[in-house]
């Protein structure tokens, strides 16, 4: 197990790990909230202008500014070297919005919502007290997909963040590419020992990078398979 101990003893890797946890947790929160507040209004057939608002969002799935224009906007909004550059440029995650919207439309019984409205509930209450609790299974899917996306992401971090803010995969890359022994860990050791430890850390950190997501996804496997099922049938 010494490879794993060394991974967390290494300050760069440890920082990277903490950063990844931070970005994943906050990013997933951001993702779930934005997906839900976008999907719910769009799922209400009685909302005036629903079609146009949907088009407004859906266009962004097919057309975009491209790498550089987006980068420039991020820079101009002061988000360089800021964690939020990892979340905001992705917009509201339209793929997820559509999945959740379809779920709301097809899996939340209208009678329940109507009953709540008759009891005097306003839109917010219906959303929070009826729709959200009933959508646990799809929320689990969105949570897992978001976590995976943020935990594994390295490219946005590469272009928008500084070295100290790098998430784990990016630190991992630095380690994998260097072939010499890593001096900040192996100061007191002989050459052979240092090399040995470096190689061990390479393997261990790859597992550290991959393990969290591998452990989580089986728990929601049933749900995302179902999600695709409805997607395929409805087209």
């Amino acid at each position: 197990m010494e490879g794993y101990k060394a991974v967390f003893a290494n300050s760069d890797l440890f920082n990277g790990f903490i950063n990844s946890v931070k970005y994943t947790v906050i990013g997933t929160l951001y993702s779930v909230i934005t997906v839900y507040i976008t999907a719910y209004p769009l799922s209400r057939k009685d909302l005036p202008g629903r079609k146009w608002i949907s088009i407004f969002f859906i266009i962004t799935m097919y057309f975009g500014g491209g790498l550089i224009p987006t980068y420039l906007v991020v820079r101009d909004t002061g988000l360089l070297n800021n964690m939020w550059a990892l979340f905001l440029p992705g917009g509201v995650g339209m793929g997820n919005v559509i999945i959740v919207r379809n779920f709301f439309e097809n899996n939340i019984p209208k009678e329940l919502m109507e009953a709540a409205e008759i009891d005097g509930a306003d839109n917010f209450t219906v959303f929070l007290k009826v729709v959200v609790p009933l959508s646990r299974s799809i929320m689990a899917v969105i949570v897992v997909f978001s976590m995976v996306a943020f935990w594994n992401d390295w490219f946005t971090a590469l272009i928008y963040l500084q070295k100290e803010q790098y998430p784990f995969p990016l630190v991992l890359r630095g380690i994998l590419i260097t072939t010499e022994a890593m001096s900040n860990m192996t100061g007191g050791l002989g050459y052979a020992e240092a090399n040995r430890l470096t190689e061990l850390v390479k393997f261990a950190s790859m597992i550290v990078a991959a393990a969290p997501m591998l452990i989580i996804y089986p728990f929601v496997q049933k749900y995302f398979e179902q999600g695709f099922m409805t997607g395929a049938v409805k087209g």
Partner: peptide, 10 residues
């Protein structure tokens, strides 16, 4: 890789 992470690299 899992096996490698708990073995002697050599």
């Amino acid at each position: 890789v899992v096996v490698a992470s708990v073995s002697d690299p050599y």
